[in-house]
Simulated scan of single mutants.
Amino acid sequence: MTVTTTLPRAPMDPGLASFLAQAAAQGNPPLESLPLEIGRQIYRDLAAGLGLPPPAVATEDRSIPGPGGSLQLRIYHPDVSGSLPALLYVHGGGFVIGDLETHDAVCRTLCHDVGAVVVAVDYRLAPEHPFPAAVQDVVCALQWLATHARELRADPSRIALAGDSAGAQLATVACLHTAGTITPRALGLIYPVAQHHSEPSASMAENGEGKFLTLGVMQWFIDSYLGGRSELTRHPDFALLSAPTLATLPPSWVATMGHDPLRDEGHALAQRIQQAGVATEHRHYPDGIHACIHFTAVSPLGGQVLSDLAQWLRGQVDAQPRV
């Protein structure tokens, strides 16, 4: 992995630094050492307890046929009249934790701020359902949205995708899989997984301990998702930096955080997308950490990231269609 430009550096946001210091003082066991369901519940509790109340929007839960059986979606409707854009949101959590509840506030915020119908997909998680189950589910959800957009009062020509961390990776892979059949307007990636730590980067060494996302939990995620099959670490549906081409992606927005182990691979991904000829905006937050979009009651930074993404998405889905 090659990153050709040095990103700005800054001390960690004070609110986030205080939160991490308090968490360290509690001496909690590493997430990867806990029973799986406890780890998943801890993520739900963090997301629910450390965020500001999101905007009130109407929601409905729906079940659709999926590759592995019933696939759950949560659909968010803004209080806006007329035909709307649609946004497929794919949650993060290392392919192992995370669900519709952990990212409910994120989806409500984007629904309100973009003025779009948001569809969140509850894709199958590892280790119960290893790679490529999550890929299949997200592709299925995107295809369903493209086919059923009008039922949701959305314009099928104004579809966008977004996600954070592993969800950003899955959203990107879904775009690549459906190239030529679905033409999204935009792809928003918040601290994306692009290669994980098969090739350790400077940001892995700098930020791999004590900054929420650790090397240990990342190894747990990758082992669970790939089922211990090391040959998959360079599969293009996992390692985006190994994809043969990214030229079919829609205009892309990539957010990286200065104190995130994934900083450098996110930066490299933004560069690769741009080098492929895709309009790309890379927003770097030098004082941020991984998962900060959940911690809006701790620091305003996560809210700023979502606001910046929403503003960019509005500009893309309200623009004239690409020729």
Rank of each mutant, 00 (worst) to 15 (best):
S63Q: 12
S63H: 05
I64A: 06
G66E: 10
G66W: 12
P67C: 03
P67I: 13
P67W: 09
Q72G: 11
Q72R: 14
Q72V: 05
L73A: 01
R74K: 09
P78L: 01
V80M: 05
V80D: 01
L84R: 10
L84S: 07
L84E: 02
L88Q: 11
L88M: 06
G92Q: 08
G93W: 13
G94W: 11
F95D: 02
I97E: 02
G98W: 07
E101D: 15
H103Y: 01
D104A: 11
A105Y: 02
V106K: 00
R108P: 04
R108H: 00
R108S: 04
L110R: 03
L110Q: 06
H112V: 00
D113A: 15
G115R: 01
V118C: 00
V119M: 05
A120H: 13
A126C: 11
A126G: 13
P127L: 07
E128A: 15
P132A: 03
V135T: 09
D137P: 15
V138Y: 01
V138W: 13
V139Y: 04
C140R: 08
C140V: 08
W144A: 05
L145D: 03
A146P: 00
A146S: 15
T147L: 14
H148I: 02
R150E: 15
R150F: 01
E151W: 03
L152S: 04
P156V: 11
P156L: 08
R158A: 10
L161Q: 12
A162G: 15
A162S: 15
D164S: 07
S165P: 07
G167Y: 13
A168D: 12
A171C: 14
I182A: 11
I182T: 13
T183M: 09
R185F: 06
R185H: 03
L187F: 04
G188Y: 02
Y191F: 15
V193R: 08
V193F: 08
V193L: 05
H196T: 06
H197V: 04
S198K: 01
S198G: 03
